[in-house]
């Protein structure tokens, strides 16, 4: 592998990793606050892409309003999912919550398939002008840079929200001890709703951006990136916001290099590395050894 090719593959890996990171942020945030692995997250991502699709094709809105409407729509969807499906089970075991999350995921996928058909739809990718960016001998394109920038920005923003704002303090309190937080006058319902709203809005943004990148959407588009993003979140240390970003990027880079080396193994190696990391550091790359939280 020549140096130029190596650098280009590194950029490819960063691009792919930034897609994983963007989706992983929402996964890890919800887990960090309420300890639920929200398997419906990747379908909220799909919902975001569909909202963006209808807004851009039927209302002919430009990129930024499309993105904002999709984020708002998925935030509402996230809160509704929490209220309808998860809240009634808040006092039950984690495993029933997990199964409910899988149920919501299947409901969204098949519901959308039923409502809008399983036909892949061509995404209105011209709402965001894409152009190649030459960086010396290697190249990337504007969209990949936007996705990388967005996930970096959102990671910082999330850290600020969680550690510097009042609602963030409430989130951390809820995460530590729900009952004690309630006794201290924190409205746990509102806090959890806010968590889901923010997490789902992130998924919505990711949905629109990635759909523009790959030009087509279908009701099952969330499954594969969802698994990868979940892996990335675990990889970096689930519940930790910077972990999702780091995990996503590293998974993307590893996968790209493995594919470039021997493409038949691309699916497997990422997960082999995950298993190795988890054997050595069970709480993920950035995770600290803590006793069972929540």
């Amino acid at each position: 592998m020549s140096l130029v090719e190596f650098l280009q593959q590194l950029i490819n890996g960063l691009s792919l990793g930034s897609v994983y990171a963007l989706i992983a942020l929402g996964y890890t945030m919800v887990y960090g606050i309420i300890g639920l692995i929200n398997f419906a997250h990747c379908d909220v991502y799909m919902v975001g892409a569909y909202i963006g699709y209808f807004v851009a094709t039927d209302l002919h809105l430009p990129f930024v309003p499309t993105l904002l409407v999709a984020m708002l729509g998925t935030a509402i969807a996230g809160v509704l999912i929490e209220r309808i499906a998860y809240k009634p089970l808040r006092r039950s075991t984690n495993i029933s919550l997990l199964i409910t999350a899988i149920g919501v995921s299947l409901l969204l996928e098949n519901g959308f398939n039923w409502l809008f058909g399983g036909n892949p739809r061509t995404y209105p990718h011209d709402i965001l002008q894409q152009s190649n960016v030459e960086l010396g001998p290697v190249h990337s394109d504007t969209l990949h840079l936007i996705i990388l920038g967005t996930s970096l920005l959102l990671m910082i923003l999330l850290q600020v929200v969680i550690y510097r704002t009042k609602i963030g303090k409430a989130m951390r309190a809820t995460s530590t001890d729900k009952d004690a937080a309630e006794l201290m006058g924190i409205n746990v319902d509102t806090t959890i709703s806010a968590t889901f709203a923010i997490g789902s809005a992130l998924a919505g943004a990711a949905g629109v951006l990635v759909a523009i990148l790959y030009s087509s959407i279908d009701p099952y588009m969330g499954i594969q990136p969802g698994i990868k993003a979940f892996t990335a979140a675990v990889f970096g240390g689930i519940g930790l916001i910077p972990g999702a970003f780091v995990g996503g990027i590293i998974l993307g880079v590893i996968e790209t290099f493995v594919t470039a080396w021997y493409s038949q193994l691309s699916g497997a190696i990422g997960f082999i590395v995950l298993i190795i990391i988890l054997i050595i550091k069970p709480s993920g790359l950035l995770g600290k050894k803590v006793s069972e939280k929540v």
């Binding site: 090719e5 280009q8 691009s15 594969q224 996968e255 594919t259 470039a260 493409s263």
Partner: peptide, 20 residues
Amino acid sequence: EETYNTGDKDFNAQLTKIAP
């Protein structure tokens, strides 16, 4: 001669290898 899996949307790794 490169491969990918069903559902893949990012083929840059393989294509970067093929291009030169």
